[in-house]
Amino acid sequence: MEKLFTLNIVTENNIGLLNHVTIVFTRRHLNIRSITASESKIKDIYTYTIVVKTTEELIGKVAKQLEKLIGVYKVFVYEDHELIHQELALYKLPISAIKSGINIEEIVREHSARILDIETEYILIEKTGHKEDTQKLLKALQPFGVLQFIRSGRVAMAKPMKSLDEHLLEKENAYTYSNT
């Protein structure tokens, strides 16, 4: 059965590594739903957050293949219930939306969004949340004539209380660097 999986891929900060990571998905004919690259709390260590829909068996194989790449320290695979995750969405509306008589501010408040910017020609709204939530707001704003909509990839954190340093140390300790 296919499910949504979120991968946290802990990497070095190398040119081309992201390319190498995505090739592993391409080889398995997997479509990446969202991707985010970000610094981690440790200097020079990055985290890619990738969301894919596939089977548990296949994602396990992909994760092992990814961990093998030089430049990748560790790969964590999560299902949604193991995660706190968020996406950020931006909405641009024509300024006429304000004058339309319906209270935009109320919609914004209802959706726990906020107005980021108001210019002479447009108004910019921001919302953070799960995909369904940002999608819902999009629907609510559609009647005002949304000029532009953009949503970030997912960022996610696992619920268990273990630090990245501990995970990395554990991995280091499971290996040696020469065969003698």
Binding site: T11, E12, I70, G71, V72, Y73, K171, E172, N173, A174, Y175, T176, Y177, S178, N179
Partner: peptide
């Protein structure tokens, strides 16, 4: 080279 960060050649 005797070690490369993020490369784990020999599992214990």
């Amino acid at each position: 080279a005797t070690k490369v960060p993020s490369y784990f050649p020999y599992p214990k």
